[in-house]
């Protein structure tokens, strides 16, 4: 339920803290009306909001291709995919609201830049192959990140993630299928796929966040059960999953140091450019300003619709009340 009790936000007596700690220790779920430490509530709101914003902003890079999809089949698939991203954002905003966050506030914080979204969506999509590569690599990385979150200690978030993960699988498969189709095509089409992979490979690795020794919040998040694996563990898992898929597709991942390490039982890979990551997070990516401006214009342009619907609902409610009173 989306009913937050104000009292539960204040620092609670020791037995409440104990009950919270015991629930986490037994790997049970925290639910909206349970007492929780302020830090946990703030962390969850920030994590869920950032995730929701990523889904909403994530509609834009691919949405640009809806009107230019090469066939009705591809267009229908892309529409369904982008609609899913909107849906994922809505599930997540709904989960954030169970913690006492206000949806309109969250939107304002996204537009004003006070809350972030995933840096990957600040890269442009100049080629149609990008639709396939985003499905394969970006949604593939998202699945790696999100599957463990189905066991998040915060119940509403975990339940939203279960729903989202089921749908992400379609996203990744449609992307890979699209790329396989292009790889069976002309030399020019194969070159488009390779070029797109080269642009998206490193930003996809950045999606897992900074390396563990530069991720100060990881320890607390793991203790609270809101994070189940470290950034580097998930990044390694993604590389291990993706290399054989790249081989099967026939593309070359742009990393000279990428090779199987039989001792570790994992692929070794080169260093991620964390300066680029920091710059994009700080707002200096290729499309940061454009993405936020687009979100703001959608919000501004939709204001009259929200107001009109609210006015209509109020008028209908008044009329129903009046006719009930006249009838009684």
């Amino acid at each position: 339920m989306t009913v937050a009790t104000k009292a539960s936000r204040a620092g609670g007596p020791p037995d409440l803290q104990q009950h919270f700690d015991a629930t986490i220790a037994q790997d049970r779920r925290i639910e909206p009306r349970d007492w929780m430490p302020d830090g946990y509530r703030k962390t969850m709101i920030r994590q869920i909001a950032q995730h929701a914003h990523s889904e909403i902003i994530g509609m834009q890079p691919e949405g640009n291709w809806i009107t230019r999809a090469p066939s009705l089949r591809r267009k229908a698939i892309l529409l369904a995919k982008v609609q899913d991203e909107a849906g994922h954002g809505m599930y997540l905003y709904s989960a954030a609201e169970t913690l006492g966050a206000d949806r309109a506030d969250l939107t304002s914080m996204l537009i004003s830049g006070r809350q972030k979204y995933s840096s990957i969506f600040n890269y442009p999509t100049p080629s149609y192959a990008d639709v396939g590569v985003i499905g394969w690599l970006v949604d593939g990385a998202a699945i790696c990140n999100q599957v463990p979150l189905c066991r998040s200690s915060y119940g509403p978030y975990a339940r939203a993630m279960v729903r989202i993960c089921k749908e992400e699988s379609f996203h990744q498969r449609q992307g890979y299928e699209l790329l396989m189709t292009m790889m069976r095509g002309t030399a020019a089409q194969r070159a488009m796929v390779q070029e797109s992979v080269e642009r998206f490979w490193w930003p996809s690795l950045m999606m897992f966040g900074p390396p563990d020794d530069a991720s100060p919040n990881t320890a607390q998040s793991m203790a609270w059960g809101v994070k189940r694996h470290t950034n580097d563990e998930l990044r390694q898992r993604f590389v291990d999953m993706t290399v054989p898929q790249a081989d099967r597709l026939g593309v070359t991942l742009p990393d000279d140091e990428l090779r199987w390490n039989p001792e570790r039982g994992h692929y070794d890979f080169g260093a991620v450019d964390w300066d680029e990551f920091k710059a994009v997070v700080a707002g200096h990516g290729p499309c940061n300003a454009q993405r936020v401006a687009r979100r703001k214009s959608a919000d501004d342009d939709g204001a009259w619709v929200r107001e009109a619907a609210a006015a209509y609902a109020a008028k209908t409610a008044r009329r129903e009340t009046a006719s009930r009173e006249a009838g009684s």
Binding site: M90, Y91, S94, A95, A160, A309, A313
Partner: peptide, 25 residues
């Protein structure tokens, strides 16, 4: 079964939004 929440101007719109949001498959 409870599946989540959404915003709508009135109950009819809430039903339509719920269909679009929670029953796409």
């Amino acid at each position: 079964v409870h599946v989540g929440s959404l915003h709508a101007a009135d109950p009819q719109m809430a039903l339509h939004h719920a269909r679009d949001l929670y029953t796409r498959r």
